[in-house]
Simulated scan of single mutants.
Amino acid sequence: MTLPTGTQSRPPSSGAGAIRVMVVDDSAVIRGLLSKALEQDPDIEVVASVGNGQMAVNTAGRMEIDVIVLDIEMPVMDGLTALPLLLKASPRTRIVMASTLTRRGADITMKAMRAGAADYLPKPTATRDIHGADGFRQELVQKVKALGRAVRPAAPTGGTSGTGASTAASERPVRRPGDAPSANTRSAAPILRPVPRGFNPAIVAIGSSTGGPQALFEVIGALSPKRGGALSVPIIVTQHMPATFTTILAEHIARQCDIEAIEVSDGEVLRPGRVHIAPGQFHMVVGGNAASPVLRINQDPPENFCRPSVDPMMRSVVKAFGGRSLAVILTGMGHDGLSGCRQVVEAGGVVIAQDEASSVVWGMPGAVATGGLCSEVLPLAKLGPSVRKLLAH
């Protein structure tokens, strides 16, 4: 195979099941560091490394690529311009946007997610941060592997991956919302719990991760006053995102969904009809009681390797609202939210989750669904209407 000028690759060494990756960044140093971090995992093969969006589009049309790590700011053609062309040239490929931790970078990343990018990766601002940050390298590898498994499933080995993450069924299906179900979408139907008689939710708590922004726009948009009347309860959201990104997420939800949405500050009053989003790097919990709830933020240790984490939010919701808690778990890697949702159910509340076919990664929703905690497991388009129906009881 002959690669285009400016492209670097290594000889195939990981077998037919390796996830094939293209790295796109205008800095040759950054490309090299990203490629080195990826190639340390035996299940990943970096097959191309190019310096701008136009070269990426040309390469994607000629090579089999599972995942593209795509920079935003590049000469000739930037990442946001290249994104739809890459998806057209290689519809099966999943794209991770590499974005700097700036307001502009976060805003462009959010637009890219709405345009079809599968995920994003906050890019360190200095090469020494990439070289020396184990957390960044681990996140890069985990996201690439999760997004690559659907298009190039790993052969069964009976062991674990290079990062120690198992290839559990709940992590297999990785798709963009709207894709047709793939051969990997084959989990058995979960056993559902009945909605408790007289269930009257006082709060909606939503947890999401990989693919979450797109899902949040869909679900919260369906709850907008313009889609069926005033929202009578508060909504709280924990989305796995860094600082700055959560600020932009709140702004995009407010504009796109036509509903009041804020990034939470400590001591924020919990208001009906408003969406309250956990800030990056902080857990968000409900304080007080159902009569006078307030939101607190803290930097307690990460849970499930995440901060913000869904589990502490859910536990606090149960403490304040008991059986009047409605939990919604959307697309995401891992199992954050599982233990918190178990407490929701034990208190008499209700859990609903996004289904496997519409999830970008069916990790978090798959964990609560296969754990027997859900009253409904629904396609993304039906989740918002289901929440509205439960609120109308």
Score class of each variant (00 low, 15 high):
Arg104Lys: 15
Gly162Phe: 00
Thr167Ile: 08
Asp41Lys: 08
Gly6Tyr: 12
Glu303Lys: 12
Ala381Met: 01
Ala117Gly: 04
Cys374Ala: 15
Met77His: 09
Asp41Phe: 04
Ala115Lys: 06
Gly132Ser: 11
Ser358Thr: 15
Gly159Val: 10
Ile19Asn: 00
Ile248Leu: 05
Thr244Glu: 15
Val285Lys: 10
Glu251Leu: 13
Pro11Gln: 07
Val24Leu: 06
Thr185His: 12
Ile277Ala: 12
Asn304Arg: 09
Glu45Ala: 14
Arg92Leu: 14
Asn200Trp: 02
Asp107His: 07
Ala82Leu: 04
Ser358Arg: 14
Gly334Val: 03
Gln142Lys: 11
Val96Phe: 01
Arg176Ala: 07
Ala278Glu: 08
Met22Arg: 02
Pro242Val: 02
Arg388Tyr: 07
Glu268Pro: 03
Ala18Phe: 11
Ser99Thr: 13
Ala347Val: 11
Cys257His: 02
Pro201Thr: 09
Gly51Met: 09
Gln8Glu: 07
Leu270Phe: 02
Arg114Glu: 14
Met63Trp: 04
Met110Ser: 06
Glu45Asn: 15
Ala369Cys: 03
Ala118Asp: 03
Gly384Thr: 08
Gly53Asp: 03
Glu260Ser: 12
Arg271Met: 14
Leu80Thr: 02
Arg172Asn: 10
Thr7Lys: 13
Ser386Ala: 15
Val237Gln: 11
Arg388Ile: 10
Asn200Lys: 15
Gly132Ile: 02
Glu376Ile: 04
Met284Lys: 08
Pro213Gln: 00
Lys319Ile: 03
Ile236Asp: 09
Leu87Phe: 10
Ala188Cys: 06
Arg324Ile: 02
Ala357Gln: 13
Met333Thr: 07
Val328Cys: 14
Arg315Ile: 04
Gly116Thr: 09
His240Asn: 12
Pro196Cys: 04
Thr163Tyr: 03
Pro42Ile: 07
Arg103Met: 11
Ala353Tyr: 13
Phe245Ser: 04
Val204Arg: 13
Glu64Cys: 00
Val286Cys: 09
Asp41Ala: 13
Leu249Val: 11
Ala146Thr: 14
Ile130Leu: 08
Glu73Trp: 10
Ala28His: 11
Val67Cys: 03
Gly79Lys: 14
Thr7Asp: 12
Val151Asn: 12
Thr157Arg: 06
Ala291Val: 07
Thr246Glu: 08
Val57Trp: 07
Ile95Ser: 06
Gly164Asn: 02
Ala150Leu: 07
Pro225Gln: 13
Pro181Ala: 00
Leu295Asn: 07
Thr247Arg: 12
Ser292Val: 09
Ala189Trp: 03
Leu216Arg: 06
Val317Ser: 09
Arg197Thr: 10
